[in-house]
Design a protein around this nucleic acid. Structure first.
Length: 277
DNA sequence: AATGGGACCTGCGCGC
DNA sequence: TGCGCGCAGGTCCCAT
């Protein structure tokens, strides 16, 4: 039997974590100017080239900060935007030390905003028009902007497994592997159920749980399982509220049945085989 | 057309 | 004790 310790699990920031970072950034760096971008590892700068990236950022005020799904957008005073995707191990830390960062931004207050990213999956893009980014254009609706009727319509005729659908950013924005597991557990829905097979009642419950879990996680500052930290470097406090994620073989918190782990869409999927049908 | 799997990466736990 | 393998996951891309 494979056993996984919880600290081997890498978890990327999902909607609640990125939203927490967005709010932290609003409190700390909004309105400040980027004096200089120091690129320590060019791989994370996806567009444009390093020179144009530095030039386009230099002297620009951070005018507005938005989140779209798991993507952060920093709108700049020159009309361009810095789009940031943290992927799995990306972090934005302020004030940083500019030492282990992939890119650090020296701000007008003399401090650094560090972009850290062990695994180099993260993406920084300086663009003229963030709305036209392919990822943004493909994004499904934000859970918070969705009503029940729309959600029901979206599920209709979908034969895909419900878990896979929740992970699909073009279907709904911001849910990742951890929150998909938590939402389905609380809704008592088996992750492999074809989406369209959910009863009206189940669709209502799932809709409600998605909103509730995400809101709750935001209130706790997100889930720090491994790499995710808040802008201050502090951990999010939601992980202790997880009920099913990363609990393989541990007793279900409702019925004591051992939690099962299967692989769906290449992702570890945790569920209670008794509660979730 | 929808679905699935590999690539991209690195750090860490575990097995030998 | 030490080393190397396999796994973790979001998104893109390609094959079926």
């Amino acid at each position: 039997m494979l056993s996984r310790c919880s600290n081997t699990i890498k978890k990327m920031p999902e909607l609640p974590e990125v939203e927490t970072i967005k709010r932290d950034l609003e409190k700390t760096i909004l309105g400040k100017k980027i004096v200089e971008a120091c690129i320590h590892h060019p791989a994370v700068v996806r567009e444009p080239g390093p020179a144009a990236f530095k030039k386009g950022l230099s002297g620009q005020k951070i005018a507005n900060i938005l989140r779209k799904g798991k993507m952060l957008i920093l709108e700049l005073s020159n009309g361009k935007a810095l789009a940031v995707h943290l992927k799995m191990t990306g972090q934005l830390v302020y004030p940083g030390n500019a030492k282990k960062s992939r890119v650090s931004f020296r701000l007008s207050d003399g401090k650094y905003l560090d972009f850290n990213d062990n695994r180099l999956f993260g993406e920084l893009r300086l663009v003229d028009n963030w709305q036209s980014l392919k990822f943004i254009r493909g994004l499904g609706p934000e859970p918070s902007e969705l009503n029940l009727e729309q959600f029901k319509k979206m599920l209709a005729a979908k034969k895909t497994k419900i878990k896979n659908l929740l992970l699909d950013q073009t279907f709904i924005a911001g849910i990742g592997n951890l929150y998909a597991a938590e939402c389905l557990f609380r809704s008592r829905i088996h992750p492999e159920r074809p989406a369209a097979s959910l009863t009206e009642k189940e669709k209502e419950i799932l809709f409600k749980e998605i909103k509730q879990v995400l809101e709750e996680a935001i209130r706790y500052g997100g889930s720090s399982v491994d790499d995710y930290v808040r802008v201050s470097g502090k951990r999010g406090e939601y992980a202790s509220h997880h009920r099913v994620y990363d609990r393989e073989d541990k007793p279900c918190l409702v019925c004591r049945t051992p939690i099962k782990r299967i692989v769906l869409a290449g992702r570890g999927t945790y569920f209670c085989p008794k509660c979730q049908r």
